Amino acid sequence: MRLMAKEEDIYKLMDVRDRYLYGAGFCLAAAAVSGYLMMQQVFFWDCLYFTAVFGFCSILCLCLAGKAGRQVMEAGCCYLELDGESLAVCQPEQNGRYESCRIFYNEMEKIVEGSRRGIPEFYVVTGKAADRESFILLDEEEQARQIFCVRSLGYGNEEFKNFYRKLRWEVPGKVRVIGTRHQTVWDRKKKRKGVYIVLAFVLCYLIPKLLLVLEIL
């Protein structure tokens, strides 16, 4: 069984990247208008606030667009594979580096299902035997660690679940499996940090206004 990102999955990532780029363009235009009005001494403090907010949002959108662009590039060369004897993975790590592994079923100690909401992932733990054939690589350097985190990167949620369940079926009975039957936590929505950022911006704008009104009253 082999999983690679489908063409439609890559197109979805490209759409996300394009939306962030459009958002960055809109925020830059809004920041430019606010900056111009500020220079004309029109609602100076309000324009200063909106210039700072839109400038920050444009930088944030550009960073997210860059991240989505990297995911598009990475999705084309990453894969998950199960054969009759082992699990093989190639996936991006950080700073443009890639991590990969081939872990044989008979050298696994346990499989631990990820419990973070909305993040499909699981961990494979290998034994400490010095003569083990399994290996974990970071780029081309072999790592001494025994734990490898397998993440869903551009794969459909159901396909990743089926891959995980297939792995649990393939491993020998001595391998300890820690997880749930249906992996419902993977289907939950992630916490939306953007909502808190927007709320903070709104409060930073409204609180001084309310204090000013209270002083007048």
Results as ranks from 00 to 15, higher is better:
140 E>K: 15
168 R>M: 09
105 Y>A: 01
216 I>D: 09
110 K>G: 05
195 V>W: 10
67 K>R: 15
39 M>L: 15
197 I>F: 12
62 L>I: 15
97 R>E: 13
62 L>M: 12
182 H>P: 00
15 D>Q: 14
203 L>S: 08
198 V>G: 04
33 V>K: 11
59 I>C: 12
144 A>S: 14
92 P>G: 03
46 D>K: 07
13 L>C: 03
84 G>D: 15
6 K>E: 14
55 G>D: 01
148 F>P: 02
23 G>P: 06
187 D>Q: 13
201 F>L: 13
16 V>D: 07
165 R>E: 10
90 C>E: 07
200 A>H: 04
63 C>L: 15
99 E>L: 06
164 Y>P: 01
163 F>C: 04
141 E>N: 09
196 Y>W: 15
148 F>D: 03
57 C>V: 11
193 K>C: 05
158 E>P: 01
160 F>S: 05
16 V>F: 05
205 Y>H: 13
37 L>W: 09
47 C>F: 06
10 I>H: 04
90 C>N: 10
147 I>Q: 09
156 G>R: 11
113 E>G: 02
124 V>Y: 01
155 Y>S: 03
2 R>P: 00
45 W>D: 12
51 T>C: 08
164 Y>R: 08
183 Q>T: 04
107 E>A: 02
123 Y>D: 07
166 K>G: 02
64 L>A: 11
94 Q>D: 11
164 Y>C: 08
149 C>D: 02
164 Y>V: 06
109 E>I: 10
107 E>G: 00
19 R>D: 10
95 N>P: 00
134 S>I: 07
19 R>G: 06
42 V>I: 15
169 W>V: 05
158 E>Q: 11
204 C>D: 05
211 L>C: 14
137 L>W: 09
6 K>M: 08
111 I>L: 14
217 L>T: 06
159 E>C: 04
215 E>R: 13
81 E>C: 03
78 C>A: 08
86 S>T: 06
3 L>G: 02
203 L>C: 11
195 V>I: 15
193 K>F: 11
20 Y>K: 09
